[in-house]
Design a protein around this nucleic acid. Structure first.
Lengths: 152, 152
DNA sequence: TAAGGTATGTCAGAATACTGACATGATGCA
DNA sequence: TGCATCATGTCAGTATTCTGACATACCTTA
């Protein structure tokens, strides 16, 4: 991982490889979502809501790895276009539980199929054991990085 | 990876985990680079130039996973502030070979040390074998994703 | 009860990256 | 040689995300 002068060697750096893989995945997802008029964050939001209905704006933001301000902008657009609904008043606290509309569910269905195909392609060259190993490796990296980096 | 209704299960999806790890790494890098007045792309550009002097704008863009337009904006700022130099005329074709100035090299030195510490922390919980496995897994994903997604 | 701390939603402005477009130089091919 | 194709640098406009800030609601604790 080191070079003679102590500079990180990008060619073998796991950090660089992680960024490269993430970039490739994002590009592939954008490629299949663009024809559907959807961005990756847009899709992530709908997918999160399908699996965990009633998530708040802040919870969606954390799940999609963006700030709550960014997610708020997206949610306002999704609400305006009829993909999600939010109550006018918070049932408890300030958090507004968000839910998919039938339109949102239909929109997600096609997008989800497209994204699933991308993920299948991504895993096509790996054995079950390799996939499992990748799973534990990534979780280990996340755990280590989060530890000393609380708060944002 | 599947749920009953065919929706991707985010909790176990390698794609989601990849995004999560990449996000955690980016956040950790931003945290240590911010005090140095440097963004991740900014750092990536300098690091690439340190390892492969003379890279062109387009080559740097590909290496940092941004468009050549974005890299061009960054390079103009770096050139204006004296971190890199580019010849006024292209020695061959239109590509302008970029090089670090002594100031750029000094600036990179501290940033590189900070980033290296982040990467060390990221790998702290993994054995050599696990790191090697992660390496091959990520490369496999990249290869599979790139295959059917030529051009951008 | 009162106060400090935390979490949330939201507005506004700034930073960053992207898409579209054009001109130019190199390359491959007929 | 001539022409089509491709890669590059760059300008302009747009889109997306971020940082900063504020008000509000809950929770803990003295």
């Amino acid at each position: 991982m080191m070079q003679g002068d102590g500079v990180v060697d990008l060619a073998t750096s796991l950090g660089y490889l992680l960024k490269e893989a993430s970039s490739a995945l994002r590009l592939a997802m954008e490629a299949v979502l663009r024809p559907l008029g959807m961005t990756v964050t847009h899709y992530s939001c709908l997918e999160l809501l399908a699996q965990r209905p009633g998530l708040s704006n802040s919870e969606l933001a954390r799940g999609a790895f963006v700030t709550r301000q960014s997610m708020n902008v997206l949610l306002q657009a999704l609400e305006r276009d009829g993909y999600v609904t939010r109550p006018a008043e918070a049932p408890v606290g300030k958090a507004l539980p968000t839910r998919l509309t039938p339109l949102g569910r239909r929109s997600l269905a096609t997008a989800s199929a497209a994204v699933r195909a991308v993920e299948v392609r991504m895993l096509s060259g790996m054995t079950e054991a390799e996939q499992s190993a990748a799973h534990t490796s990534l979780q280990s990296m996340i755990r280590s990085l989060r530890g000393a980096d609380e708060g944002r």
